[in-house]
Amino acid sequence: MAWLRSKLLGIVAVLVLVYLFVPIAVVAVLSFNDPEGKFNISWNEFSLSAWGNLCGVAGVCQSFILSIEIALIATLIATVFGTMIALALVRYRFRGRGAANSLIFLPMATPEVVLGASLLALYLNLRLPLGFWTILIAHIMFTISFIVVAVKARLQGMDPRLEEAAQDLYASPWQTFRFVTFPLVLPGILGAALLGFALSFDDFIISNFASGTTVTFPIFIWGAAQRGIPVQVYALATLVFALALVGTVVGQIVSSRRRRKLAASS
């Protein structure tokens, strides 16, 4: 009983983590399913056919590749812009700083339907043709705020004396950034970019407004939901998740190993 009580919090924590992963496990399991009928909802029979033929359904791989392209470009641009904003907000004092902070916060406080609807209203008023570019513009817009918040946190955790020390040691403002600020903030930027990529790749609500007839991976899934989502979609989603999880967990273990080794050698 005492044992249970002392471990209770840990047990609850693990159960919550399990809860987070149950639907993902369902997706992974169903990717090996050979569904009965069109809808891949309940387990029928083990099959590798989807994994063996990932692009076997018309349009699925095109939409998948399009989503990756958009996510890569959007993340790259949003990360550059977002990092610049974070630098300005943390390292400089200037008029309008409060307003800039609010402008960054507002998109995160606006429901996605409203973001999507307002963008579409603008696109329609300007008579912009909907497609790749309008999706890309939207993704950069909603990703920037998340990047700013993540990089800002990292910058605020950095000792301002390190930059002063660099200046004192003959580094020009650019060299200070290049040799001190940037390397120290880089892990934060990479983390932010990873999150940005995930948000962009997985976005449906805003993309659905901005896309016209262009089909991204989430839009493909939404469209297919009515007539049954192909098993290939489950396999591709499982693949992305597995790659991301293995990548981050391995990265985590490597960096903590290195830290422990450093600690042991001192």
């Binding site: 983590l17 149950v22 639907p23 993902i24 997706v27 449906f204 989430p218 499982t238």
Partner: peptide, 19 residues
């Protein structure tokens, strides 16, 4: 554990809801 909390972001939102 933090990685595991963020990990669901990498599994399709639509498919997770569908699950």
């Amino acid at each position: 554990m933090l990685v595991l909390v963020v990990a669901p972001f990498f599994a399709s939102f639509l498919l997770r809801t569908y699950a």
